[in-house]
């Protein structure tokens, strides 16, 4: 399944989010169960299948990590080689430091400012990595993409943690 084609979008990493959402809503309308009240069982089954595909495709295409993995697959890298552990001391040290400052944020005078700063940095770093991925895909250099996807996954986790601590602190207000 090529979800770019399902959504009628060019098969590139740099997906335009506005068009993606528009296509998603159009496809959702076209496959809405209300449209199949008078349809045969088979037609209804096909429509249901389409609904599932459209939803799955939207989740994949809107998420840079999943989208990059999907694009690698389309380009013939079936199982993107994913290292079990990452061995980039500089990168890991930075991740560790961020995790520590996140953990310490609770005891800071203004934890929300600490977290906001961190989220800001995460978003900057994420954009940088996504730009690099996009450049590699443009040049059809697929090999280095897997490692950058790995790095994005660390930022994704860091962001989740930051947001969950933020929500936790808000609950305590």
């Amino acid at each position: 399944m090529n979800f770019f084609e399902l959504f009628g979008l060019p098969v590139i990493f740099d997906v335009d989010m506005v068009s993606l959402k528009q296509r998603f809503h159009k496809l959702q309308q076209a496959t809405h169960p209300d449209k199949f009240v008078l349809a045969t069982d088979q037609e209804r089954r096909v429509a249901m299948q389409k609904v599932t595909q459209v939803n799955e495709g939207f989740q994949i295409l809107k998420n840079p990590i999943l989208r990059a993995q999907h694009l690698l697959q389309i380009k013939g890298i079936e199982n993107p080689p994913q290292a079990k552990t990452i061995n980039d001391p500089q990168f890991l040290l930075q991740q560790m430091t961020w995790r520590e400052s996140l953990e310490d944020s609770r005891s800071q005078s203004d934890p929300f400012a600490v977290i906001a700063n961190l989220l800001d940095e995460i978003s900057k770093e994420t954009v940088k990595l996504e730009t690099v991925i996009n450049d590699y895909f443009k040049d059809d250099q697929l090999e280095p993409v897997a490692e950058i996807i790995s790095k994005l996954q660390f930022f994704h986790k860091l962001k989740q943690e930051a947001e969950s601590i933020e929500a936790d602190l808000e609950d305590q207000l």
Binding site: Q82, A83, K84, T85, I86, N87, P89, F91, L92, L93, Q95, M96, R99, E100, I149, S150, K151, Q153, F154, H156, K157, L158
Partner: peptide
């Protein structure tokens, strides 16, 4: 220092080694 991309986990493990090459103490985060 190691990390697992699949789940975004990061681990730091440190050892303190004596002159005889014995691990006297260890700490992790």
């Amino acid at each position: 220092m190691v990390g697992a991309p699949a789940c975004g986990d990061v681990m730091r493990l440190q050892i303190q080694v004596s002159e005889e090459g014995i691990i006297e103490d260890a700490k992790f985060k």
